[in-house]
Design a protein around this nucleic acid. Structure first.
Lengths: 112, 112
DNA sequence: TGACATACCTTGAACTACTATGTATTATGC
DNA sequence: GCATAATACATAGTAGTTCAAGGTATGTCA
């Protein structure tokens, strides 16, 4: 029974991938673990989530892919493009807007 | 062309509706405007979003509905139940976890 | 009579994350 | 030498949810 669409996750994988790749280029499997580490285990993305995001971002030219042979194994390194940077900025803005909105509702010391 | 699933909105309508109804009971149309006001215009939910959420929450007994005739017109007032309170607490926890995780990734002063 | 705000509701589509599964190679344990 | 785990990439199918657009009806103001 596939448990899908857990609350508050839409757009999150894309944002995290773009943000982490803005720091340095990485390959898919590395990203999976980087997300876990960077969020302090708060968010964990499976490979089945990360790879489709990478492919779709590459297709929209937000990422560039480079195949590098490492240890006889081929790794696909992804790096942020100028388009990707813009996409990251836009997503970050969306996030800030929504985060602020929700915070102002949750924060209210409710005096029933 | 319906633009659906904008980033970061999954679960948000449910959270906002529960949170606002925790303060005081309200009817659908009132909620639509309350969300806009409470989030400082940052988040605006259409009626097509709010009503299905209300119905689904009523179905899962998180909300109780009361029909009240006002000015010859019938309004359906929704109030939080004990189940709804638990659901709100759970969702709030989810939100805090994800919000914290993302913040720790975004916050990094990136020194390229 | 017309226009507009209030109030409620439904529908169809589109998006996206998730689990599960598959393939292949390298490293580790016994 | 064999089994297991970790690495590395990939796809399929599902399902949950938001959204725009439309529909109905009443009250109010000009």
């Amino acid at each position: 029974m596939p448990k899908s669409n857990p609350p508050f996750m839409s757009g999150v994988p894309e944002l995290l991938v773009l943000r982490l790749l803005a720091r340095q280029e990485m390959y898919g499997y590395e990203l999976v673990k980087a997300v876990r580490a960077a969020t302090g285990e708060a968010i964990a993305l499976g490979e089945g989530v990360v790879y489709p995001v990478l492919h779709s971002l590459e297709k929209s030219r937000a990422l560039s892919a480079t195949r590098k042979p490492v240890n006889g194994r081929t790794r696909v390194y992804y790096a942020l493009t100028a388009i990707g940077r813009k996409r990251l900025d836009a997503l970050t803005g969306d996030w800030r807007r929504i985060q602020t909105g929700i915070e102002s509702v949750l924060a209210e010391t409710h005096h029933v």
